[in-house]
């Protein structure tokens, strides 16, 4: 059986974080499920859900800093986020259910490092950095490099996620998000696609695409972005983008869908975003 410790201040966390078998607990919406299924068996739980220094949302110059222990519901209700990072709210509204969003945290969703992590899509698109602290000091890593593989991040022993630093885009982006699953609530995406697009007439001025559940980690589709930037959106370009998208992902077969189906879906979602960007 594990021991439990409520962390009030960050120094207490640093003191215990390297204890053998220690795990950080926050909302518990992933961790408690894994503990009960026997997938993990921590001996010490360090609960940061009431650690004030790791909670909250603040604007600093052109960036928003969101504490790791801030809940998804708090982010959805925040005015500053609504104004600066609307796509973050659009995506987080689709995460879990009301009960889950009231407990789940941004930091938790990131360190869980699921290939389907909803929060990763807007964070990749907004080019956020992960603020990491640890017994050897602080460092900052782009979200794109932070997520490595299913359940794996670049966190090393003695480190934890303090929060996320997100630059508010200065360009006027249209934002798009599609998540495909069997129902709207409580699903883990079969495939998802988010996009920030700025158009000049029907020409793509700038585009950022991020996809979930089609690779070992949520990914930016940089090659595809480059291939269609500066181009006039035509039927032929959409077809080309679709093919590129299908070939650029590496999904797996699992209980939710086959790899082939996921490839088809991601191709279609890319086409949908491009069509909507033109008509919008």
């Amino acid at each position: 059986m594990h021991h439990y410790m409520k962390i009030k201040r960050v120094p207490e966390l640093l003191e215990r974080i390297t204890d053998p078998g220690a795990r950080i607990l926050c909302g518990g919406t992933d961790l408690v499920v894994k503990m009960r299924s026997g997938a993990i068996d921590p001996t010490l739980l360090l609960d940061i859900s009431d650690t004030e220094a790791l909670r909250g949302i603040e604007g600093k110059e052109d960036r928003l800093i969101i504490g790791a222990a801030t809940t998804v519901s708090e982010i959805i209700a925040d005015r500053l986020v609504a104004e600066k990072l609307p796509l973050l709210q659009t995506v987080l509204r689709t995460l879990g259910s009301t009960q889950i969003r009231n407990r789940a945290t941004l930091g938790g969703n990131l360190v869980n490092a699921s290939p389907a992590a909803d929060s990763a899509i807007p964070l990749l698109l907004y080019q956020a950095d992960v603020n990491i602290s640890g017994i050897h000091g602080d460092r900052r890593v782009p979200v794109e490099d932070f997520l490595v593989a299913p359940g794996k991040t670049t966190l090393t022993s003695g480190e934890f996620v303090r929060g996320v630093s997100i630059p508010a885009p200065n360009a006027a982006f249209g934002s798009f998000f599609h998540k495909v699953g069997r129902r709207k609530a409580m699903i883990i995406a079969i495939a998802s696609l988010g996009a920030l697009v700025s158009m000049k007439d029907d020409v793509i001025n700038e585009i950022r695409l991020a996809a979930g559940s089609v690779a070992p980690r949520p990914i930016r589709m940089r090659e595809l972005e480059q291939a269609i930037t500066g181009k006039l959106v035509t039927k032929a370009l959409i077809e080309h983008a679709k093919t590129m998208a299908i070939n650029s992902v590496s999904p797996i077969d699992d209980v939710r869908a086959s790899a082939d189906y996921r490839r088809e879906v991601i191709g279609e979602l890319v086409a949908r975003v491009m069509r909507d960007a033109v008509s919008g």
Binding site: Y4, L25, V32, V33, T98, Q99, N102, R103
Partner: peptide, 26 residues
């Protein structure tokens, strides 16, 4: 018992949560 069904929903400080995923000490 894994947060999917909501049968164990209670309110903590006015917010709906699933009590199966919350540890008592919390």
């Amino acid at each position: 018992g894994e947060g999917e069904c909501g049968a164990c929903t209670v309110l903590i400080d006015g917010k709906a949560v699933v009590s199966c995923l919350i540890l008592a000490p919390q």
